[in-house]
Design a protein around this nucleic acid. Structure first.
Length: 118
DNA sequence: GCCTTGACGGCAA
DNA sequence: GTTGCCGCCAAGG
C-alpha cells in the first residue's frame, strides 16, 4: 500500500519500538530511507496519533527534543523511566543502553519491510 | 504553483 | 561546554 504518507510510515516505526527502548528522529528517517529527513519525522510526530508512543522518540544523543509536547519534558522522562529507560541527565536518556533498533533488530526490521513491501 | 513552517542533525565559531 | 547557522524533505496555507 503506497497510499501511506510519510507520517504513516513514521508512526509504523514508532509503534514498533518495544517498551523500555528509545529511538531518535534521525534513526527513524534512516529506516525510512530519508537519511536527512529527521525534520519530517519531527513534523510527523507533531501530528502524532494517540496510539503512537511518541515518548520513545527522542533527539540525537537521547536528548528530549520534544519533551514540551507532553506538557513538560519531565513528563516524557517519567514515562520512559517507568518503562525502564535509564537517564544520563535531566533531559537525556541512555541511548547506548536502550537505543532502538539494535544492530540485530535493525536487520530484522529491514527484512520485515523488504518482505512486506517489495 | 510558490512560500513558510517544523517535536532535527551535524559542524563551526 | 554552549550557542548559532545551514541543509534537508514533506505538508499546509
Amino acid at each position: 500500500m503506497r497510499v501511506t504518507t510519510f507520517a504513516e510510515e513514521v508512526y509504523a516505526v514508532v509503534r514498533a519500538v518495544p517498551p523500555g527502548r528509545v529511538t531518535t528522529y534521525g534513526t527513524i528517517a534512516r529506516l525510512l530511507g530519508r537519511v536527512r529527513g529527521a525534520r519530517q519525522v519531527g513534523w510527523a510526530m507533531r501530528h502524532s496519533a494517540d496510539d503512537v508512543p511518541a515518548q520513545r522518540v527522542v533527539g540525537a544523543g537521547g536528548h528530549l527534543s520534544g519533551g514540551w509536547a507532553f506538557g513538560h519534558p519531565s513528563v516524557q522522562r517519567t514515562l520512559l523511566e517507568d518503562e525502564g529507560v535509564a537517564f544520563v541527565g535531566p533531559e537525556r536518556c541512555d541511548l547506548d543502553a536502550h537505543g532502538w533498533p539494535d544492530a540485530d533488530e535493525a536487520a530484522a526490521w529491514e527484512t520485515e519491510q523488504a518482505a512486506g513491501q517489495p
